[in-house]
Design a protein around this nucleic acid. Structure first.
Lengths: 359, 359
DNA sequence: GTTGGCACTCGTCCCCAATGACTGCTAAAG
DNA sequence: CTTTAGCAGTCATTGGGGACGAGTGCCAAC
């Protein structure tokens, strides 16, 4: 009941699946992931030491199919896992994988030489993950509202117009232009922004409500006009870059996958990857999870992505900032390894970002 | 000697090609671009009114082949244009196309609603051009050194560290972190930066040499230490974002082209598009050209791109700022139309960017 | 210089038979 | 009640072979 050829498959407890069914399901997933060919009862008995004949396996597989874990591409083919099959495999059957110490070190080393600018780090991490996973990798920058407010700076470019710059704990500065009524003096506005800085510096952006800003400005004793202008400038600069930047790499790896030789499927996936908004929506909810999450096939909620899976891991750093790192590939992906890669990378990224005095 | 079916082809003067050869070459390019099928002598005599028999055309085509303008994919196929054939077509044979007024207006209208932030405008333009051209479109942001310096702002984030922000005429602000020796007071540095602002505001970045900055800081009478710190901060902030940002869209359109059904070709192209650096190098030299430029097949200097062509148009705005807009597609592309699209888009983009008070 | 005619090449298409990888079922054995 | 061997049946894949046809080059005649 242990694997003979290839990597051994574990046989964990699984409620409604008896031990043998669980082993068969796990082995079908493992074999299909490795070969991309539907798995038949003979392959199973020949490559793995099951102790029973192929006829028995056939019966078991038929039951696994009617229970929804396996499907047959066509009558005379072997079985491949369904979404539910993969799901069970990921949740309960597979042996979680840890990277070898050497691999972990290689990843950590990649960050040693990394840039100190958040945008660059994120882009470089995406490239690294694309290379390591041989899949599409993409990164979502930490949402603005998980960052800490540091400074609002008003820069005068002309009599009536200027640039408002909001500096947060990472991710550098975002800016928005503002104009102001001549009745408001630059001096007033500078004092108003100083007041805001004193009052809110070090606070997480999400805690700085519009009403608080208004109240703070009102109590500063400055004219309502000046307060209003500063408040508008602050809001615009704080809100820019939303939704957060998304960078993706490695689309060329999709072409290596036998399931994407069909160009129609490939095209719709490419379109979604390019249209960053859709991609963002597919995984945004995983940002609040802890550790690696997996979405398999239709779980992604898009027919175009039905043949894909996505592994995501949030990366955290500093004081509660959180972004998302993701691997997108065919549903038939080595989940344990992808999760380990993503997890280690998120870990190293988080350490790098926390340790550094980032821009 | 004029076209019968389809759009008529022009018959311009062409030194070593007599009128008939020129017409045949132009027609082969036109027909091949339209159908993606090698063009034979019969197709030509049937679809176009040549006044001679197919045998004569065969003789002419054989000569065009030995002169290097046409090639035969295999013995029993028609001819397709070579790089040189396309080149001659583009330079001397094709009738330049202008967009219909209605199309031009549609493009102009797209910009009416466009963002005021340069990065957003560039991204939106890339998407627009991808859609219009049904090809890959990419944009190179205006090089930093074509921009005008407006303001250097030092922001204090702690006792010894801060953020230097350089605001230029467009493209918003770029920033770099700096640290300073405690012996230098913040006040000194602020005065130093004020001095720089007074001295250089409104000057093109490329004219502000390191030595000028050093000289200006020296003559300001501030300590060498303060001057040095400010100079470093300025240099770093000014140099960030180099090479300029590149955004691309429309890779999915490549999949529609019959020449890229072969996934090997597709993969290497996708890799290059993703690796923005290579793409940048392929076309960077066209930035100084005036109006549309075309690079055909091997002219791109990359074997991987041998089946592609790129149409580029610089877009100019403000006081000498220049970026690049490009369409990348199969060598078999409707050059006149692509050039017209790119040109009109660059025009509208330039107008939008010049007219607006951009961030 | 042009043309019609002709033999020749060669990629494409389609049909069809052979193959073989599976299955499900059944009846017998454990 | 479970397991197994055996067997008939299904069906995608493969490869051969012939027909097709598009297109060429060449040549002799105009």
């Amino acid at each position: 009941m242990t694997a003979k050829g290839g990597v051994p498959e574990p046989v964990p407890a699984a409620p409604e699946l008896d031990k043998r069914k669980a082993f068969i399901l796990a082995t079908v997933v493992y074999e299909y992931v490795a070969t991309a060919e539907p798995v038949g009862s003979n392959t199973l008995t020949q490559k793995y030491n099951l102790g029973v004949s192929s006829a028995t396996i056939r019966n078991e597989m038929a039951e696994l199919e009617s229970a929804g874990y396996l499907v047959q591409p066509h009558t005379s083919a072997g079985r491949i896992p369904s979404d539910a099959g993969y799901r069970t495999y990921v949740d309960r059957l597979m042996r979680p994988e840890a990277l070898r110490t050497e691999e972990k070190r290689r990843i950590r080393d990649e960050f040693r030489a990394a840039s100190r600018e958040l945008d660059d780090v994120i882009e470089q991490t995406a490239r690294l993950l694309g290379q390591l996973s041989h899949n599409v990798a993409f990164m979502i920058a930490p949402a603005r509202d998980t960052q800490t407010f540091r400074h609002l700076q008003l820069i005068w470019l002309s009599e009536r117009a200027g640039l408002a710059i909001v500096v947060t704990s990472v991710g550098g500065a975002t800016q928005a232009p503002f104009e102001h009524d001549p009745s408001v003096t630059a001096d007033d506005m500078t004092r108003a922004s100083n007041h805001l800085n004193a009052r809110f510096a070090g606070r997480p952006m999400r805690e700085i409500a519009e009403s608080d800003v208004a109240a703070a400005l009102a109590e500063s004793g400055l004219s309502a006009e000046a307060g209003k202008t500063v408040q508008d400038a602050f809001r615009l600069a704080a809100r820019s870059q939303e939704p957060p930047a998304l960078v993706s790499t490695g689309t060329q790896h999709l072409l290596d996958q036998p399931e994407f030789q069909d160009l129609r499927k490939l095209r719709s996936i490419l379109r979604i990857v390019e249209e960053q908004k859709t991609l963002y929506e597919l995984v945004a909810d995983s940002m609040t999870n802890d550790g690696p999450s997996v979405k398999i096939g239709h779980e992604l909620g898009s027919d175009d992505m039905a043949e894909c899976s996505v592994v995501t891991v949030p990366y955290r750093f500093g004081d509660g900032m959180v972004g998302l790192l993701a691997i997108l590939g065919p549903r038939r992906m080595p989940y344990a390894r992808m999760m380990a890669l993503a997890d280690s990378t998120a870990q190293s990224l988080g350490e790098h970002l926390s340790g550094a005095d980032l821009v």
